[in-house]
Design a protein around this nucleic acid. Structure first.
Lengths: 232, 232
DNA sequence: ACGATTTTGTCCACGCGTTCACAAGCTCTT
DNA sequence: AAGAGCTTGTGAACGCGTGGACAAAATCGT
């Protein structure tokens, strides 16, 4: 009866339309479950997991309920079983080849990030437009020239890419990626990038995050001595 | 008349309680306005700005209306004037000293990020626990030993800090930061960090972002040939 | 075997954010 | 000077996400 969640009317149930907010938290649960498993814990309650992840217990249970009924009332969740189910839901039973465009500090940070491997992510290639960087090695892979981007994406059927270039290059890179068949892009460049509807685009802007913090700091310090320009 | 927005009843107006979602978009508008100003554009409509930022025009107008009535009906917004108003609202009329903990690739990427300066952000110090990194230079500043963290934060009255350490060190670093008086933290370490209520904590997890993309890719490819384990 | 205890799964109410639609208000032309 | 044409600012409806509260269900102890 609660089916038809994200379904367009008349098309039939979209089946397992997990809310975006929930999807964003699943990796968090997965990480906590891994820690618990490493510690030898076999079973945990929603309250345990909630404390380990900083999430409200009711919210956590609701999140998990979207995947199915994997818990046991009165007992809790089997750590390994739940871990597998979340990993499967996130698509981590397979390995995803990811291309990273831009071998600056950020691109290098991503390329050398430990822990992608255990989460179904494999760095297929790192590319850069700067000839001085091409040929050097970051992590396990050699830096390729940007000209090979299209070729590499097609040959290896890469569907996920990361843009870690300067802002000026972002849109052009995105266009090449889309044309080559990439359908999910993570953009770190501080620029608005346009992609077709069928391409999933997420963006992370490090500068914006700091500006948000500065806003809160300003409000904090401005609040006590208010009055100025208040009513006007 | 539109005062008393986020006010708790009986306490009096909280004055300018701008929704969090709006605050997160203001830096985006600010960047676009900078681009327009550089291009010599004196005036722009909400539709222009919306296109430049990829935001719905109505949403953009509502966002700006939280700051005040800075537009002119029938005309649009004065680019320089609006730019100044948003910058002021975000606290960019002053400069915020920021401490970066961790001089790995990510910490280095942040330290060398161009464009913090023009957004009221100044890197006060970069610190690392690895003696091999201490003394080297990233951007303009020398890398300091982690032991000096408390001292530096107190001396320079730093209120904003970035954690770019391995996950294991994150909580300990956060504790030192909070004890030293930091009230806003941006955490890049893949770990759940606990801070007191009065401290603002934002987190960015590069691995989680990629896992979310992988989820969507999986759904995309799994959808056509469905049926498997569907109804059960 | 049965009641006490624990914990899940979910209903429901609330609040925030988004978007539409339109009145208010400004400029420009005639 | 008056109307035509824009564009802002906002009221109102809607939908999503959150969290409290509780019934359903499983285990444990006696």
């Amino acid at each position: 009866m609660t089916l038809l969640r994200n379904a367009r009317p008349g098309v039939g149930p979209t089946e397992r339309g997990i809310p975006e907010a929930t999807v964003a938290r699943l990796p968090l649960y997965l990480r906590a479950l891994g820690t618990l498993a490493d510690a030898g814990v076999a079973t945990c309650s929603s309250v345990d997991l909630a404390e380990a992840t900083g999430v409200n217990p009711a919210k956590l249970r609701k999140d998990l309920s979207y995947l199915g009924s994997y818990g046991t009332r009165g007992v809790g969740y089997d750590v390994e079983y739940l871990r597998y189910q979340i990993a499967r839901e996130l698509g981590q039973t397979q390995t995803w080849d990811v291309v990273i465009v831009g071998a600056g500090n950020l691109g290098t940070a991503l390329s050398t990030y430990q822990g992608f491997g255990s989460r179904g992510i494999s760095i297929a290639a790192v590319l850069d437009a700067d000839a001085a960087r091409v040929g050097s090695t970051v992590g396990d892979v050699r830096v390729e020239p940007i000209e090979r981007l299209d070729e590499i994406v097609r040959e290896r059927s890469v569907s996920i890419a990361v843009i870690a270039t300067p802002a000026e290059a972002a849109q052009e890179v995105a266009d090449v990626l889309v044309a080559a068949g990439v359908t999910s892009i993570l953009n770190f460049a501080p620029a608005v990038v346009q992609v077709p509807d069928h391409v999933e685009l997420r963006k992370v802007d490090l500068s914006i995050e700091l500006q948000i913090l500065a806003y809160h700091e300003q409000r904090r310090t401005a609040a006590p001595a208010d009055d100025r320009e208040a009513s006007a």
